[in-house]
Design a protein around this nucleic acid. Structure first.
Length: 423
RNA sequence: GGGUCGGUGCCCGAGUGGUUAAUGGGGGCGGACUGUAAAUCCGCUGGCUCUGCCUACGUUGGUUCAAAUCCAACCCGGCCCA
């Protein structure tokens, strides 16, 4: 594969899982509809940037590192002068992509979807410091943000029937997720069959030259090609990137599995999560999430791991914050109690909403460290809670006022910290 | 529409009238250990400012001193047949 790809630029090749129908001309063809190298050459000759599509469904409110693989590649295209067409799936989010799902997804309201879309754009860099933004929002012509309700909401029944006629039940059932669900007797709602078609229709609507997606998107991206052909357009290329393993190192990074690092997370939690990722995925993170050359990195696994955590934190929060996070993480985990904890930069929480006098277990819950006061009580009894490095043993210990807690660091386990502020 | 089986805590899955937040596993969280992690061992895993009080086994009613467990209707789903 490396040899075949050799005429594509390195920035484009890095971390690819799949590229279809073909990367460069193997034997006969220099057909720009069949090989990406030819399409790139053609575009360059014509002085026309490629339209690179990436669709995201605003179904949750946080973007995590797993998603950022795709955005990084999209950014690379931008930096090479191409046009990123970011599709906010505000319409499709309400159907729910059945990919990778074992059950029908709950449908979201239009308002929820829109709220998510806004936070997505901010996390991608809209209105943020361009130096740390994931996408280039500033250079003219490099980014097009579209919402697919723009063309999907207005489809009428004859048009929908036309779309449905393009494919068959057999083809749909060839899709792994559907096949599994059908095979195991898990319900599949009919509207879920519409999802791949609508995603494909997005490609038609924006006249995509190439669509980015995770490897699990192959079916949907290929569907886009079928639809484009049906509507008389040149079919897009499909560029698939690996699915990032989550912090557990086994399953894919996914919010529902709780193994994510969110782009919006503070430096300390980002760093401390990343520095304990299993060794086997460290190189994968480095390849997919950074531009570093793996060959020149330290061989010691622990060193490598820390460097990866540092680099990813830096990319998001800047050099100073990342370095501070590394120091703080070391101090806090080492349990260098008072000193370390006091010096550390940890997320701050106001105590204004807490009613005093406050018992310890209530405090934990009120401050948001524990999901419930009952859980807080258990955690304290389990010996996992510290205040300024000192273990709390009595869940009923009372604190009389916010003032006596001001500036102290409340800690649950090794990963969760809150600095308490009286105001 | 007919037949049939089934709906239990984050998930899977026991339980089939009676002290009980409800066996077990997974996952998660915490502790010990370690270079972080993994593995292993231990603890916790409904809510509530909690020595007690609430809410829980699809929904709603019913039988009973007592129901996740019995009955009825309804809702949802699988499979077979139309």
């Amino acid at each position: 594969m490396t040899a075949v790809l050799s005429s594509l630029p390195p920035w484009l090749q890095r971390g690819l899982a799949d590229l279809f129908p073909a990367a460069v001309a193997q034997e006969a063809g220099l057909d720009p509809d069949q090989t990406l190298a030819a399409r790139l050459a053609e575009a360059e000759a014509a002085g026309r940037p490629l339209r690179v599509k990436l669709g995201i469904d605003p179904t949750g409110s946080d973007i995590h590192l797993g998603h950022s693989i795709l955005f990084r590649k999209l950014r690379a295209f931008q930096d090479a002068g191409h046009t990123a067409v970011l599709i906010i799936g505000d319409f499709t989010a309400r159907i729910g992509d059945p990919t990778g799902k074992s059950t029908t997804r709950v449908q979201l309201s239009a308002a929820e979807v829109e709220a998510h879309a806004e936070t997505y754009l901010v996390q991608l860099g809209l209105g943020q410091d361009p130096g740390r933004a994931l996408l280039d929002f500033h250079t003219p012509g490099r980014l097009e943000v579209r919402r697919n309700s723009e063309w999907l909401a207005g489809l009428n029944l004859p048009q929908v029937i036309e779309l449905l006629g393009i494919t068959t039940v057999g083809q749909m059932l060839a899709k792994e997720d559907f096949a599994n669900r059908y095979g195991s007797g898990t319900p599949i709602s009919l509207h879920e069959f519409l999802y791949p078609l609508l995603q494909g229709y997005d490609s038609v609507a924006v006249q995509a030259d190439l669509e980015l997606g995770g490897t699990d998107q192959k079916f949907n991206v290929a569907m886009g090609r079928d639809l484009q052909r049906h509507f008389g357009q040149r079919p897009q290329f499909g560029m698939l990137l690996p699915i990032l393993p989550g912090l557990d190192g086994v399953q894919k990074m996914s919010k529902s599995l709780g193994n994510t690092v969110g782009l919006a997370e503070d430096p300390l939690s980002m760093y401390s999560k990343l520095e304990k990722v299993p060794d086997v995925v460290v190189d994968e993170y480095l390849t997919l999430l950074t531009d570093l050359d793996l060959a020149v990195l330290p061989a010691n696994p622990r060193e490598r791991q820390k460097l990866m955590a540092l680099e990813l934190t830096r990319a998001r929060h800047g050099v100073a914050a990342a370095a501070a996070a590394q120091v703080d993480a070391a101090a806090l985990v080492a349990g260098a109690a008072g000193a370390g904890a006091a010096a550390a930069e940890v997320p701050e929480t106001s105590l204004v909403a807490v009613n005093f006098p406050a018992k310890a277990f209530y405090l934990l819950a009120a401050v948001g460290i524990c999901a419930s006061s009952s859980e807080a009580r258990r955690q304290i009894q389990g010996g996992g809670v510290k205040l300024d490095g000192e273990k709390l043993v009595d869940p009923n210990q009372e604190f009389a006022s916010a003032a006596e807690l001001h500036g102290k660091v409340l800690q649950l386990g090794k990963k969760t910290f809150r600095r308490l502020l009286a105001g």
